[in-house]
């Protein structure tokens, strides 16, 4: 009996050998199991077989049929799985392909730096005020205790529109404009553009400053020191060392300059900003009694701050507006 089965299997081996697709399986099924298929043909032959062998032959035929069905259905499974796998691959997306990126613009480093300072000051109760960039000489100099032939004017190379109008050389005129309009107590900061007729590798003819003013009954040098150290450390890092050095500005007395320690292990100090207690003459100029009110003021260069914070080593990057630069921050 085994021989009959083997014989039958042998004769259909060729038909089930090369099954490479579902179509091949279907073809094989039709040719083996179909109405006119091989096995049907064999069943038809049964009547010619001697009756004593007939049962055995029929059994063998059934076994072969089962085996072929099993082989074919396992092939179908196999092909279906592979087809499914193929379909999944086809509909997949290679997500290592870089995304189709939309552009979000960025704010200029100057704006980011100003905003960072503004946020620190706002937390301390300071309010933003602004003033014009074309100023009267009065607001830029005289009101700030710097009369016309004062040697301190040497520190400010000035652009003039005419005899009485100039491009403000510092944000300090905003102090005067604010105090003329509002009574103390005051805590204001004023970011903005200022101008000096000075253009070389380390100076721009137009740059940004942030001015600050705090006027109250008992504001002291200790308050000035504490406020500025807090701001500098908030913006540039708690690890920075800050030093206060006596200096001179016509509109503050006492005046100080604030230095910070050089970044990354370099020794020495870097001048960062000028500050001081508001000069009594300045208070008098806006009608405040210096025996009643006192306070501090300061002015800080934004570019210098940004250069320190981000290691920008060429100040001319700021007005250049190269996208290579703008995209960095």
């Amino acid at each position: 009996m085994k021989n009959i089965r083997d014989m039958l299997m042998e004769s259909i081996k060729e038909r089930i050998k090369k099954l490479e697709s579902l179509e091949d399986v279907e073809k094989a099924r039709v040719s083996i199991l179909g109405k006119k298929g091989f096995l049907k043909e064999q069943f038809k032959k049964m009547k010619d077989i001697p009756p004593e062998e007939r049962a055995e032959f029929g059994k063998a035929l059934n076994l072969v049929k089962e085996e072929v069905e099993r082989i074919l259905s396992s092939k179908i499974e196999e092909f279906k799985a592979s087809q499914k796998k193929n379909e999944a691959l086809e509909k997949s997306v290679d997500l290592t392909i870089p995304g189709a990126k939309r552009s979000i613009g960025r704010l200029h480093l100057i704006t980011q730096m100003i905003q960072e300072c503004v946020e620190v000051f706002e937390r301390m109760g300071f309010e933003v005020v602004e003033g014009p960039e074309i100023e009267n000489t009065y607001y830029n100099f005289e009101a700030l205790n710097t009369p016309q032939w004062h040697p301190a004017r040497d520190l400010h190379d000035t652009f003039y529109i005419d005899e009485n109008k100039l491009l403000r050389t510092h944000t300090s005129p905003v102090q005067i404009r604010t105090m003329e309009l509002r009574r103390p107590p005051l805590r204001v900061i004023s970011p903005g553009r200022v101008y000096r007729k000075d253009y070389d590798a380390s100076h721009l003819p137009a740059f940004f400053q942030i001015e600050g003013l705090a006027i109250d009954k008992d504001i002291s040098i200790a308050d000035l020191k504490g406020t500025l150290e807090n701001v500098i450390k908030s913006v540039l890092g708690e690890d920075k060392k800050v030093r206060f050095r006596p200096h001179y500005f016509p509109f503050t007395e006492p005046s100080v300059e604030v230095d910070i320690s050089f970044p990354e292990g370099k020794s020495g100090w870097l001048e960062l900003l000028g500050a001081g207690m508001v000069h009594p003459n300045v208070l008098r100029n806006v009608g405040l009694d210096p025996n009643e009110w006192q306070g501090f003021a300061f002015g800080m260069g934004i570019e210098r701050l940004a250069m320190l914070k981000y290691g920008v080593d060429d100040i001319r990057e700021f007005p250049r507006n190269s996208l290579n630069f703008l995209k960095l921050f």
């Binding site: 613009g105 960025r106 200029h108 003819p205 507006n321 703008l326």
Partner: peptide
């Protein structure tokens, strides 16, 4: 992208 250009 924000640019900051000279006013003169």
């Amino acid at each position: 992208y924000e640019a900051v250009t000279y006013p003169f």
